[in-house]
Simulated scan of single mutants.
Amino acid sequence: MMRIGLAIVAMLSGMAGASAQTIESVYTDFDAAECVMFAPGEAEAGMPRQAVCPGYGGYPVLLQTIGDNHSLYFGFPPQGELVSRWASFVDTGTPHDVIEWRVLAERDRQVPQATIQRWFVAVPERDDPVEVLLVQKVGLIEDWQGCIVGYVVATGNPDANEAARKIVDALGSAPQCRTIEPVIEAGSVPLPEYMLYGF
């Protein structure tokens, strides 16, 4: 009888521990005017302008710019490097001014797992930009990694936000970026051609 009672207590304790861990969305503003430049870059030589921007809970947003193209990295870069990766689109892409952070909350600890940000890609054959949700794993202090985990075409897709969150919750906590192949979800509108360097 005592053993059964202890087993039930252990089971309930495990359930309580699991329920104490949740993933929630936190939103921050993104404004390039608030970023602080740390490298002016040289467009002719293919060297981007680099800046650090406010993020979430001490996790920075790193912005790179060459001409009209931008690349964003969330969290701490690999091996302590300032910026070593480029993720953007072949056609001009403009990031939305709101970033959704998917945050793992466990008691008093909040750790951002990944971000979702809407991009507007000016595809030449279309009158209106193609909207794409870019899903990125946040580089944490413990593993110094951050990477693209998914692209969801939002144009013509009313369920795009939910699809992006499912990608985050499945891959955002994966330990090794190098083993992650980005998930691509596109419907009637194809995903604009994208560029990835250093991933």
Score class of each variant (00 low, 15 high):
Asp31Ile: 11
Glu24Cys: 04
Glu125Trp: 10
Val103Leu: 12
Arg102Ser: 15
Phe89Ile: 12
Leu134Lys: 13
Trp144Met: 11
Asp159Gln: 12
Phe89Ser: 00
Asp68Gly: 09
Met47Arg: 07
Glu24Asn: 06
Tyr73Asp: 01
Ile116Leu: 14
Cys147Pro: 15
Met47Ile: 15
Gly146Asn: 07
Ala51Tyr: 04
Leu133Arg: 08
Ala45Leu: 13
Gly55Lys: 01
Ala33Trp: 10
Val121Gly: 14
Gly80Asn: 02
Tyr27Lys: 03
Met47Thr: 12
Val61Ala: 01
Arg107Ala: 15
Ala154Ser: 05
Ser84Gly: 11
Ala45His: 13
Leu140His: 07
Gln21Glu: 11
Asp108Ala: 12
Phe76Pro: 01
Pro124Gly: 10
Tyr151Asn: 01
Tyr56Thr: 03
Cys53Thr: 04
Trp101Cys: 02
Asp31Trp: 05
Trp119Ala: 15
Val121His: 13
Arg85Gln: 02
Asp97Arg: 09
Pro78Tyr: 01
Gly150Arg: 04
Glu44Arg: 07
Ile141Ala: 14
Arg49Tyr: 09
Asp31Thr: 09
Gly146Asp: 05
Val98His: 15
Glu162Met: 14
Gln117Trp: 06
Phe76Glu: 00
Met37Lys: 04
Val98Glu: 10
Ala51Lys: 13
Arg49Thr: 09
Val98Asp: 08
Phe120Leu: 09
Met47Ala: 06
Ala43Glu: 11
Ala87Gly: 08
Val152Arg: 12
Val153Cys: 10
Ala164Cys: 02
Phe76Thr: 00
Pro124Trp: 07
Val98Ile: 14
Val132Gly: 08
Ala45Trp: 13
Pro54Tyr: 00
Glu42Cys: 15
Asn69Gln: 06
Gly156Cys: 07
Phe74Glu: 00
Val83Lys: 00
Met47Cys: 14
Phe89Trp: 11
Ser25Phe: 08
Cys35Pro: 06
Asp128Arg: 04
Gly156Asn: 09
Ser19Tyr: 10
Ser25Pro: 12
Pro124Tyr: 10
Ala51Cys: 05
Ala105Asp: 06
Cys147Val: 13
Tyr27Leu: 03
Asp91Lys: 03
Val123Gly: 14
Val121Pro: 12
Ala87Trp: 04
Ala32Trp: 09
Val130Ile: 12
Leu82Asn: 01
Asp128Phe: 12
Leu63Cys: 00
Asn157Gln: 08
Ala51Asn: 06
Ala45Met: 07
Ala45Arg: 11
Ala160Tyr: 03
Gly41Trp: 06
Pro77Tyr: 01
His70Cys: 09
Gln117Gly: 05
Thr65Met: 09
Tyr27Ala: 08
Thr65Asn: 02
Ala164Phe: 06
Ala163Tyr: 10
Leu82Gly: 00
Arg109Ser: 13
Phe74Asp: 00
Val138Leu: 09
Asp31Gln: 03
Ile141Lys: 14
Gly150Ala: 05
Glu106Lys: 10
Val149Phe: 13
Arg126Met: 15
Pro158Phe: 12
Gln110Asn: 09
Pro129His: 02
Val121Asp: 12
Tyr151Gln: 03
Ile148Tyr: 11
Asp31Gly: 10
Ala32Cys: 05
Asn69Phe: 02
Gly58Ser: 08
Pro60Glu: 01
Ser88Leu: 05
Thr155Ser: 14
Pro112Gln: 11
Asn161Lys: 15
Leu140Thr: 07
Ala87Glu: 07
Pro124Ser: 10
Tyr59Asp: 00
